[in-house]
């Protein structure tokens, strides 16, 4: 890039600044609210920082909303879904990307179609089905519908397409067999997109609200967003301090994960580069 003239650069930075402020503002407001005592919320007005700090809000949210258990539930469910999705989607993506077999076109067409079907078209029968098999209000019921992912197959296949065929030929002459080829050659080479998909999956299912709302009827099973939503509908609807503290607690794990995984995530979504 050549250096642009000064006014153009100023405008550019101004735009970026506005975007960054808008993007970060809700997070900032969340923290500000969470750190101020409830009694102080209206008085503080537009002040940048609360006049008194009150960390008790976090304790109140944690205890009243039973967030500890919710976080644990979230961890178990998100982890189980991630594991299952990796186990199912990675081999499927490899087969679709690199193995020629009868019916692969049709089957991949099904994957694409599933990618386009919105939740509202599937949630009623899925819910009935889960209940028929007695899985309503169980952890299995929360996990099972997501053990595979059309998006995962699609994203991983996209990157695996760029693995040179010669490498798979080399694996064949080396005698690795299909499973070893998958584990020793394809998986390590697809790590960027696998990582990206893993982060994406964790985001999606940690943050999922709709399905737990349907399935997890008993409070013991509630996931973090569900617990938070219930918390805000309950009697303390106006305790914004505790609510914001709760929101911060629910948001934090995923935010931290993202900050760590950011580089790989962006790379992976780009399809990464594979050089021989």
């Amino acid at each position: 890039m050549t250096t642009s003239p000064v006014p153009a650069r100023l405008i550019k930075w101004l735009l970026v600044l506005i975007a960054v402020v808008i993007s970060l503002f809700p997070f900032y407001w969340m923290l500000r609210t969470a750190l101020a005592p409830q009694s102080q919320q209206l008085a503080d007005g537009l002040g940048f920082w609360p006049s008194h700090l009150d960390f008790g809000n976090f304790a109140r949210a944690w205890n009243k909303a039973n967030l500890g258990q919710a976080l644990l539930n979230g961890l178990i469910i998100t982890g189980a879904i991630l594991l299952l999705q990796l186990i199912t989607c990675v081999p499927a993506a490899y087969a679709f990307a690199k193995i020629r077999f009868r019916g692969s076109g049709v089957l991949f067409g099904v994957v694409l179609a599933c990618l386009l079907i919105p939740t509202q078209a599937t949630m009623v029968p899925t819910f009935i089905g889960i209940n028929i098999f007695g899985l309503g209000d169980t952890r299995i019921g929360l996990v099972l519908p997501f053990y595979s992912s059309a998006f995962g197959i699609f994203l991983l296949r996209q990157q695996m397409l760029s693995i040179p065929d010669a490498l798979l030929d080399a694996a064949r002459t080396d005698g690795l067999g299909p499973w070893r080829t998958l584990l020793r050659v394809v998986v390590p080479m697809s790590m960027p997109s696998i990582a990206a998909f893993a982060v994406f999956s964790v985001f999606t299912h940690w943050n999922d609200y709709l399905w737990p709302l349907l399935v997890a009827r008993s409070p013991d099973l509630a996931t973090p967003p569900l617990r938070l939503a219930v918390f805000q509908q309950a009697d303390i609807g106006f305790d914004y301090s505790a609510l914001a503290a709760g929101a911060a607690i629910v948001t934090a794990p995923i935010l931290i994960l993202f900050l760590f995984a950011q580089r790989r995530f962006v790379q992976g979504m780009a399809g990464g580069e594979i050089a021989g």
Binding site: V20, S23, L24, P26, P224, G246, A247, V250, T251, I254
Partner: peptide, 23 residues
Amino acid sequence: VRTALFLPMTANLVAMAVVFKWI
């Protein structure tokens, strides 16, 4: 800048909705 702009995507929408409700 990128990190800052990516953050909304990672946010828990229920949690953010709680915050927006207050905003």
